[in-house]
Write a protein that binds this DNA or RNA. Structure first.
Length: 666
DNA sequence: AGCTGCGGGAACC
DNA sequence: GGTTCCCGCAGCT
């Protein structure tokens, strides 16, 4: 697919506006690269030959929705399957499987035992409410020259496993021996997909099984009721959200919002993170278009590397302290999750592997709380570097600066590091490490860090902490002021101490924020306390970056956006370059969206983090060595692996979310 | 069995 | 009347 306009060009020619609903859409000469995980209010234009676009594919589980417009296909997000107990996988990640599109199949999924063999939870759907309380919607429109895509809303939940993973799991069949799956996955990896294997064991016990339940909430906010005045398909609610994270991914890091609005003294990224990005990551990635089905071509295991089976035999938790080059970073890391030991192993390129594995093997995870740099994830092969519109890899500024204030109020969900911080704070929750639940840690959590965590949680709004959709829902995208009061009240019930009918309080878990990141936890989960101690450091490191960011991206607003390029009066399609620019998309006037800055700052930004979530799963490996698998055991791991890609994109968005982000004008 | 697209219908404004 | 979402159906893989 051809590249889009260069960043500079984009800036000069701000996003020409077009709407999927327009009678005449512009005739695009350049197309956006395929983006599997489009999030936020974005618009993209794909070439007619883009297979993914033609299939209306998406990493998100999107179901068809009738919009009574045959020319425009509408799809809405089904959310993600999560563990009812919000358990943390041995690797630190969380369960987030892909909901079946088919209602029937989806119903079957719900209530199944959590894939985490050490967890007694059940799978339940965490529905998407990213669009003012309703599921995020995707619109597809085909024209003679291009395929137009428009998304509304910001996913307020972790990314589900990749579709390919879900399919693989399905094909393997529940209840099969894990090894079968491992083999399948291994083959996949060899093909450039991913290598995964997992070990299934019998579930420890069958506690009282919770009746299958759905987290599906009733529409909280009538699509129409809320005061958002955004026109159809142009709602900008929550648009800021993804911008930060995605923005990063682009060559032009146009970072808007948080940085601009909040001065901050708290480093958003840890310093160690920076180096890794700049140095470790060369971003010299192959010109590769993100593709749903195409996982980063990580190398398959070779004789020099430990075989999956061998890896699983390790008794000691592994601790990664390694760096990898940019190319490796670009790939999804093959990982192995040993549920038994709770260890996640990453496959590294051989030249690096040796050292990596040596270290890996020699360290004890129990004491590794600090072993992993805050920005380790940046070093993971799975990170896909950003590519410029032309498909060339561009060094992605890792410097995403966010002040403390921002961290608390305007948390960028997209920021992996941010996420990481948060997550670490919550690792003690339901951690099943080495087969044991760390009760003591939980206690600590409540006694020492819980409150703290919340305050530090990105996007956390102290004023409304209880009103967050769900503890698991990291993002609260509901506009405070503009969503209908009535709708909003639904959430406020929680504020009043009311229990969410759908999700009975399970304190202490109840208030826990959903953590998507599995990276940091993988190696640190064993020591919850240490995590907390790290924070100060992290904060300090962020500072420099924040400053830089502000300087560089201080001027986000682009007045030019006012020009409305497309449909020309004569009815002919206006030719325009695809909107790949990372630049924020501003509406000509403020009147289109009434969300207040406060809302955006405090809530929307969180959404951008979502992508990160997926990471949790990402580096987990399944242990191939063991045998019978409970039907569900497999997919957790699989899903986790899948998330790799997701995470990748989220962290360092493989797909330029830049497409066309709408940024609220204030 | 599950995905996808289509269309009817209800609810809301 | 317009828009949204829910649901079922049928074709396809």
């Amino acid at each position: 697919m051809s590249a889009t306009v260069a960043g500079n060009q984009q800036q000069q020619h701000p996003h020409q506006e077009w709407d999927i609903n327009d009678s005449n859409v512009p005739r695009v000469v350049e197309y956006d690269p395929w983006c599997e995980w489009a999030d936020g209010h974005v618009r993209r234009v794909y070439g007619p030959d883009c297979e993914e676009a033609r299939r209306h594919a998406s990493g998100w589980a999107m179901r068809n929705t009738n919009n009574h417009n045959v020319s425009i296909l509408k799809k809405s997000c089904l959310g993600v399957l999560v563990c009812s107990q919000e358990c943390i996988l041995p690797g630190g990640g969380r369960v987030h499987l892909r909901p079946a599109i088919c209602d029937k199949a989806r119903k079957k999924q719900q209530g199944k035992p959590c894939p985490n063999r050490q967890c007694t939870g059940r799978l339940e759907i965490l529905s998407c409410r990213g669009h003012c309380g309703y599921p995020v919607t995707h619109f597809w429109r085909h024209t003679e020259h291009a395929i137009f895509f428009q998304a509304k809303g910001q996913h307020d939940h972790p990314r589900p496993e990749a579709k390919s993973t879900s399919e693989a799991r399905r094909s393997v069949g529940a209840g099969r021996r894990v090894r079968g799956l491992a083999v399948l996955l291994a083959n996949e990896a060899a093909l450039g997909s991913k290598l995964m294997s997992l070990r299934g064991t019998k579930r420890p016990n069958s506690e009282a099984i919770e009746p299958p339940r759905t987290t599906q909430p009733p529409p909280l906010i009538p699509d129409k009721g809320y005061s958002c005045s955004c026109p159809p398909f142009e709602c900008m609610c929550g648009l800021q959200t993804n911008a930060p994270a995605y923005q990063q991914s682009h060559h032009h890091q146009t970072t808007m919002y948080p940085q601009q609005t909040a001065p901050n003294d708290t480093p958003y990224w840890l310093q160690d993170t920076v180096p890794s990005q700049d140095n470790a990551l060369g971003y010299n990635l192959p010109n590769q278009v993100p593709h749903e089905a195409s996982y980063p071509d990580f190398p398959s295991f070779t004789g020099e590397l430990l075989q999956p089976e061998e890896i699983f035999q390790l008794d000691q938790p592994l601790r990664p302290e390694f760096t990898m080059n940019s190319q490796e970073v670009a790939r999804s890391p093959p990982t192995l999750l040993d549920l038994g030991s709770g260890t996640i192993k990453y496959e590294m390129k051989q030249h690096q592997d040796q050292g990596y594995w040596n270290q890996f093997l020699s360290e004890d995870s129990s004491s590794s709380h600090l072993s992993m740099p805050q920005d380790d994830r940046l070093q993971f092969p799975s990170f896909e570097t950003d590519k410029d519109s032309n498909g060339f890899c561009v060094k992605r500024p890792v410097n995403h600066f966010v002040s403390n204030k921002e961290v608390n109020q305007n948390h960028h969900l997209n920021n992996p590091l941010n996420f990481q911080d948060y997550q670490r704070q919550h690792q003690s929750h339901k951690s099943f490490v080495d087969g044991l639940v760390k009760n003591d840690q939980e206690a600590n959590y409540w006694a020492q860090s819980h409150q703290d965590d919340r305050l530090n949680f990105p996007g956390f709004d102290p004023r409304k902490e209880e009103d967050l959709l769900s503890p698991r829902r990291d993002v609260n995208c509901f506009p405070k002021e503009n969503c209908q009061p009535g709708s909003y009240n639904v959430y406020s019930k929680k504020e009043n101490g009311m229990v969410d009918p759908v999700r009975p309080s399970r304190s202490p878990m109840e208030n826990k924020h959903y953590s998507y990141d599995g990276y940091s936890q993988m190696f640190e989960q064993s020591d919850g306390k240490s995590q907390l101690t790290n924070r100060p450091n992290q904060a300090t490191n962020r500072m420099v970056l924040d400053e830089r960011l502000q300087n560089n991206y201080g001027r986000e607003t682009n007045p030019d956006s006012t020009e409305r390029l497309f449909p020309d009066s004569n009815g002919m399609e206006a030719t325009m370059p695809a909107q790949n620019s990372p630049e924020p998309f501003f509406y000509p006037s403020n009147d289109r969206c009434h969300y207040t800055c406060e809302v955006l700052d405090t809530r929307l930004p969180q959404m951008s983090m979502n992508p990160t979530v997926a990471q949790s799963a990402m580096n987990n490996y399944g242990d191939v060595s063991e045998l019978d698998l409970p039907p569900f055991v497999d997919y957790t791991l699989v899903g986790m692996l899948c998330s790799t890609e997701e995470d990748t994109s989220s962290l360092l968005p493989g797909c330029p979310q830049n497409g066309q982000n709408y940024v609220p004008h204030h």
